[in-house]
Simulated assay, not measured.
Amino acid sequence: MVNFEYLVPTKILFGKGTENEAGRLIKEFGGHKALIHWGGDYVRTTGLLDRVHKGLKDAGITYVDLDGVVPNPRLSLVKKGVELCKQEDVDFILAIGGGSAIDSSKAIAYGLANDFDLEDLFLGKVSTDKIAKIGAISTLAGTGSETSNSAVIDIDTMGPKTLKRSYNHECARPLFAIMNPELTYSLPAYQTAAPGADIMMHTMERYFTTERDVELTDEIAEGLLRTVKTMVPEALAHPTSYTARANLLLAGAKSHDGLTGLGRVGDFACHAIEHEIGAMFDVAHGAGLTAIWSSWAKYVIHVDPERFAQFAVNVWGVQNDFHDPMATGLRGIEAWDQWCHSIGMPTNLHELGVNPTDEQIQEMAEGAVEARGGDHAGNFMKLHVEDIVNILKNAR
Rank of each mutant, 00 (worst) to 15 (best):
His384Ser: 10
Ala177Trp: 05
Asn394Trp: 05
Leu224Gln: 14
Pro188Ala: 14
Asp103Gly: 04
Glu306Pro: 02
Lys16Leu: 10
Leu84Lys: 10
Ile343His: 07
Ala269Asp: 12
Lys54Ala: 12
Phe208Asp: 05
Leu48Pro: 02
Thr347Met: 10
Gly111Ile: 06
Glu276Asn: 09
Lys164Asn: 12
Ile102Asn: 04
Glu219Asn: 11
Tyr42Ser: 15
Leu7Asp: 10
Asp58Arg: 00
His169Thr: 12
Gly196Arg: 07
Gly97Met: 01
Arg165Ser: 08
Ile12Pro: 02
Glu276Val: 06
Gly374Glu: 11
Ala272Cys: 08
Gly68Ile: 00
Arg331Asp: 13
Ala237Thr: 12
Phe92Gln: 00
Thr328Tyr: 02
Val152Asn: 08
Pro160Leu: 05
Met231Lys: 14
Glu363Gln: 13
Gln319Cys: 03
Gly124Ile: 12
Ser241Trp: 09
Gln87Glu: 14
Thr162Met: 11
Ala95Val: 01
Ile333Thr: 02
Lys298Val: 05
Phe281Asn: 05
Val8Met: 15
His238Tyr: 14
Ala309Ser: 10
Glu5Gln: 13
Trp339Glu: 10
Leu94Met: 00
Pro346Gln: 04
His341Phe: 07
Leu7Tyr: 13
Pro325Met: 05
Pro325Asn: 03
Ile199Ala: 09
Asn3Lys: 09
Val82His: 06
Phe281Tyr: 15
Asp358Glu: 14
Thr62Met: 01
Ser166Gly: 12
Ile391Tyr: 11
Asp324Lys: 03
Glu83Ala: 14
Val43Lys: 02
Ile343Gln: 06
His256Gln: 04
Asn20Thr: 13
Asp198Lys: 07
Ala237Asn: 13
Glu334Pro: 09
Gly258Val: 09
Arg226Asp: 11
Asp41Pro: 14
Asp65Phe: 04
Gly159Cys: 03
Tyr63Gln: 00
Met345Ala: 12
Leu392Cys: 08
Ser145Thr: 08
Glu21Arg: 11
Phe29Gln: 01
Ala251His: 05
Ala136Asp: 00
Asp375Thr: 15
Ala189Asp: 11
Asp154Ala: 15
Pro73Met: 01
Ile26Cys: 00
Asp304Ser: 12
Asp41Arg: 11
Gln191Ser: 05
Ser127Arg: 13
Leu248Arg: 04
Ala287Val: 03
Ile131Met: 12
Cys340Val: 00
Val232Pro: 07
Arg331Pro: 08
Lys161Gln: 11
Asp213Asn: 15
Val2Pro: 03
Ile155Pro: 06
Gly144Pro: 07
Arg264Val: 07
His350Val: 12
Asp358Tyr: 05
Pro356Met: 04
Ala244His: 07
Pro174Met: 00
Leu25Val: 03
Ala189Gly: 09
Glu146His: 02
Arg264Asp: 05
His323Cys: 06
Ile178Glu: 02
Gly286Asp: 03
Asp304Gln: 06
Ile199Phe: 06
Pro188Tyr: 08
Ala335His: 07
His350Ala: 15
Thr240Tyr: 10
His256Cys: 03
